[in-house]
């Protein structure tokens, strides 16, 4: 256990190791640790942000769903109303059409009746003249009695 040059040797070794540690050992570890710390902090931050985003998105989705439901019921209601309206319109139209057809038919019938009456009137005149000719068995002045007979026919 003599004090000798080992003392100096050990001091030199100490200095070299400390220098080496300062230069080559400490910085990479320190850097890696700080980077990891930063990364973890960022990760935690991102996680909390994501959960907040999720909450927000859920809320938004809920709102959208509610809105769309409202919209859907509104549309349905409108459609129902429109359908009723259309049915009503169609009904009205049909009724009008029917009325028109009935009126047309009625006019036609009347026209037909009038024409038949006219025809009958002309025929009645000639028949009456023929009848009167036969009855009287004599020739009657057609021109003189025509007027009389026409008057008679008009009374039909």
């Amino acid at each position: 256990m003599n004090i000798n040059m080992t003392l100096i040797g050990q001091s030199i070794a100490f200095a070299i190791f400390v220098w080496f540690c300062i230069k080559y050992v400490w910085p990479p570890i320190s850097q890696a640790l700080h980077e990891r710390q930063k990364k973890i902090a960022e990760g935690l931050d991102a996680a909390s942000r994501a959960s907040r985003d999720l909450e927000l998105a859920q809320e938004q989705a809920d709102q959208t769903l509610r809105e769309s439901k409202e919209q859907a019921s509104e549309i349905l209601e409108q459609a129902n109303k429109r359908a009723n309206q259309m049915i009503e319109e169609a009904r009205g139209q049909a009724r009008a059409e029917g009325d028109r057809i009935i009126a047309g038919a009625r006019a036609e019938v009347e026209q037909e009746v009038n024409r038949a009456k006219e025809e009958l009137r002309t025929q009645v005149a000639s028949l009456a003249i023929l009848g009167a000719e036969r009855v009287l068995e004599s020739s009657i002045d057609e021109k003189a009695h025509r007027k009389l007979l026409d008057e008679l026919a008009a009374e039909l």
Binding site: A13, I16, F17, F20, C21, Y24, V25, W26, P27, P28, I29, Q31, A32, L33, E35, R36, K39
Partner: peptide
Amino acid sequence: GTLFICLFRKAGKAATT
């Protein structure tokens, strides 16, 4: 001392995040 330097240097170099 060399063992210390090597161990820590190795870990420091391999250190990732």
